[in-house]
């Protein structure tokens, strides 16, 4: 490096008093800034593309829309069309999150605090492998293997818990329902939630764990007093990462769910809901003109939902930052 030599050899620059810049620092700071800016540019470009492409559909009124796009009914506005899709997207993702998060936390705790070290390493590796499976494969697995096995369970739910509105029967056979889609999605998002949670659990300071143990906490009490509170924000971030994946998942949902466009909480019946991404994938081949603009508009809505979910997650995490242990 040229500027790291004897400072006395360099005459002081008149005017501005600045510490000498080392080229390594300069290169790093420029490339880091560039990477940061690039992300913003890409995000803005995607948003712009979605808005521009969705615009032709946005400006049409419902009569024109029905005329241009054959799968949009009479007297249906764009929002009437996208509403049930938003509902279906969120419902499927929520089912997946409700199923996957507790399991992921359990698995992560097992790996980080219960399993013998050698078993834990290989176990963690197997969980990570789950994340490498393409979603088409999950779709095939869900449709061909899981579905026949789920029917008896769903049937039991409909028969015995049918008085709870969401479990109202009769259960469909094959169960191409949103609950099936939610379960497949849960398996898909399990590895990411597990992996992130495990990392966070492992970062709990030994100091705090020992403080709890020395007070006479059992292992579970120690986990409840130190590990879980310490990891709280990390686990929420992990769940949100999983939620993001579940919201945008296309193939697995398209392959197991029989679509419908209703605001329906009936999770054991087919033909009730659909998610945005699967809808785009299924409708795209048969669409042209304004139809494509409508689909892109639904993509824009999905984009906004994901942004809102992430902002919500950040807000939840920051609310108790003072108690997070980061200070």
């Amino acid at each position: 490096m040229t500027t790291t030599g004897d400072p006395a050899a360099k005459p002081a620059r008149p005017g501005k008093q600045r510490a000498p810049q080392r080229p390594g620092d300069l290169i790093f700071s420029i490339s880091a800034k560039a990477a940061g800016v690039l992300i913003l540019v890409i995000l803005a470009a995607v948003a712009l593309f979605l808005i521009v492409q969705a615009w032709p559909a946005i400006q049409l009124d419902s009569a024109e829309l029905a005329e241009e796009v054959h799968w949009i009914g009479e007297a249906q506005s764009l929002l009437d069309y996208v509403g049930p899709l938003v509902f279906g997207t969120i419902l499927a993702a929520l089912i997946a999150l409700i199923i996957a998060t507790p399991i992921a936390i359990g698995v992560a705790l097992f790996i980080s605090h219960y399993a013998p070290r050698r078993l834990a390493t290989s176990f963690a590796y197997v969980i990570d492998l789950l994340a490498a499976i393409p979603s088409v494969v999950y779709g095939l697995w869900g449709g061909l293997w899981l579905m026949p096995k789920l029917y008896p369970v769903f049937d039991w739910l409909a028969t015995n818990l049918g008085f709870i509105p969401i479990f109202e029967g009769p259960a469909a056979d094959p169960p191409r329902t949103i609950l099936t889609a939610g379960i497949v999605l849960a398996v898909m998002i399990l590895p990411i939630i597990t992996a992130v949670s495990r990392e966070v659990f492992l970062q709990t300071p030994t100091l705090h764990e020992e403080a709890a143990l020395a007070l006479g906490a059992t292992r579970w009490e120690m986990i409840r007093m130190t590990v879980l509170p310490f990891a709280r924000s990390g686990v929420i971030s992990a769940a949100m990462l999983g939620l993001g994946r579940a919201l945008g998942e296309t193939m697995a949902v398209a392959m197991v769910l029989s679509p419908g466009l209703l605001y329906s909480f009936l999770i054991l019946r087919p033909g009730q809901q659909q998610n945005i991404a699967a809808n785009i994938a299924l409708k795209f081949p048969e669409s042209s003109g304004v139809g494509i603009n409508v689909l892109i508009f639904t993509g824009l809505v999905l984009f906004v939902i994901t942004l809102v979910v992430n902002m919500l997650a950040r807000w939840i995490v920051s609310r108790r930052a003072e108690f997070s242990g980061a200070n």
Binding site: L207, H208, G216, A217, T226, P229, F323
Partner: peptide
């Protein structure tokens, strides 16, 4: 676990539970 409830310990570095208030820290045990 019972032994540790009878014999308390203070560590080299102060380690109050960061996620708990002062009040909750004292009554944690």
């Amino acid at each position: 676990v019972r032994v540790r409830r009878q014999i308390g310990m203070v560590f080299q570095r102060p380690n109050p539970f960061p996620t708990m208030s002062i009040h909750a820290n004292v009554i944690a045990g």
